[in-house]
């Protein structure tokens, strides 16, 4: 499958994520949109890594070139998991205090 399709898919996922973060006020949905953006990146990393590796294999059957991208994906997943645990904890605390997950509540922090 041509690389363009992966790029288009990742781009649309990322855009949905951005628009979601910008427009929604529900903290959980914003959170999910952030995950969407992270995963769009992961998708691209995997796609490019695969393509790069395939090209390198054509000249050298034993090569390892191009697989680092897939390694990065695991890192991102780990970081994302950590982030989710912290973020969800914040949201839970927020809900306990205000009985809402409306992001605009955070405006009060400015004073």
């Amino acid at each position: 499958m041509p690389i363009q399709y992966y790029i288009y898919l990742a781009l649309s996922l990322f855009s949905i994520g951005v628009v979601g973060v910008l427009t929604r006020r529900n903290a959980i949905i914003i959170f999910m949109c952030i995950e969407l953006m992270l995963n769009a990146t992961n998708l691209l990393l995997v796609a490019f890594s695969k393509m790069h590796h395939a090209i390198a294999l054509a000249s050298n059957a034993a090569t390892q070139v191009g697989i680092e991208g897939q390694l990065f994906v695991f890192f991102i997943m780990v970081v994302a998991a950590a982030e989710v645990s912290v973020g969800l904890a914040i949201i839970v605390m927020m809900y306990r205090n205000t009985h809402s997950v409306d992001i605009n509540f955070l405006n009060r922090l400015k004073n």
């Binding site: 951005v18 973060v21 910008l22 006020r25 992001i103 955070l106 405006n107 922090l109 400015k110």
Partner: peptide, 12 residues
């Protein structure tokens, strides 16, 4: 202005 959304928009 303290609007998180506005900051993010500006960042984007």
């Amino acid at each position: 202005n303290g609007q998180v959304g506005a900051y993010i928009l500006m960042m984007v």
